[in-house]
Amino acid sequence: MKLGILINEGPYQHQASDTALQYVKAAIKKGHEIYRVFFYNDGVNNATRLATPPQDDRNITKEWSELAKNHNIDLVVCVAAAQRRGILDKGEAERNGKDSDNIEEGFRISGLGQLVEAGIQADRLITFGD
């Protein structure tokens, strides 16, 4: 089946992103296709490459990035939610006159339409949040 994933909370504060990661890994193992992972609300904070968690803690952003690379998963960060919270790619940083970007490799910034499209195209949409 084609599965769409919506993540509405950032890493560390809530378990949401961790649960979503475990779910997505299990789904891939079972042969399902992850149509898209969409990050909304504080979920956009999962995409910053500037986070430096302690060495003995998990690095959620890296885990998403590697999972995306190994399994060709589309990780999309909502542009409106990201702008509010200071998550920017190079183009967004330039467009908004900011001095740097901070998005991790494997994530891309796009519109909320990508969430709606995932809802339309995927067989199921599963939300993780607080």
Partner: peptide
């Protein structure tokens, strides 16, 4: 507020 934002976009997709 952010729920309302998704709602308005969904409507634009004729759903």
């Amino acid at each position: 507020l952010e729920s309302l934002e998704v709602v308005l976009i969904t409507a634009a997709f004729d759903q």
